[in-house]
Amino acid sequence: MDKTFFKKILKIILIDFIVYGILYFPIWWYSKGIYKALLKCFKIFTDAWEGLGLSIQVKYLFKPMYGQRDVTGILISFFMRLIMLMFKLICVIFVFVFCSFLFISWSFLPIIVIYGIIVNYKFLLQR
C-alpha cells in the first residue's frame, strides 16, 4: 500500500463523507431541496384540484344540471353548483393551507432544529 492509496482513502473520508456527505447538507436543503419540496407541495395541491374537479365546476357554473333546461331547473342548478363550488373551494383552501404548512415546515425545519439544539444545550449547561 503506497502513499497515494492512503491519500485516496483520506479523500473519500474528507470529501465524499465530510464535505458532500454532511457539510453540503444545508446548501442542498435551501437550493435543490427546497425546489423539490415546492414541486411536491404543488403536486399535492394540483392533484386535489383535479380530484375535486374544480375547473369543471367553474366551467359549467351556468350550465343546467341533469339536462333540466327549464327556468326552475336552471336556477336550482346554478345555486346548487354555487354551493358545491363553495364547498369544494373550502376543501381546496384547506389543502392549500396544508401544502403551505408543509413548505414552510421544510423551510424552517433546519433553523428550528438548530435553535432547539442550542437552547437545550445552553439549558443543560446552566443546570
Binding site: Y20, G21, I22, Y24, F25, W28, W29, G33, K36, L109, P110, V113, I114, G116, I117, V119, N120, Y121, F123, L124
Partner: peptide, 24 residues
Amino acid sequence: LDSKILVFYFGVLALMILFYRIQM
C-alpha cells in the same frame, strides 16, 4: 427544555441528513 428534547432535536437533524444523503 430537557436533555431528552435535545436528543430529539439531534434525532431530527440525523433524519434530515439521512434524507439528504439518500436524495443525493
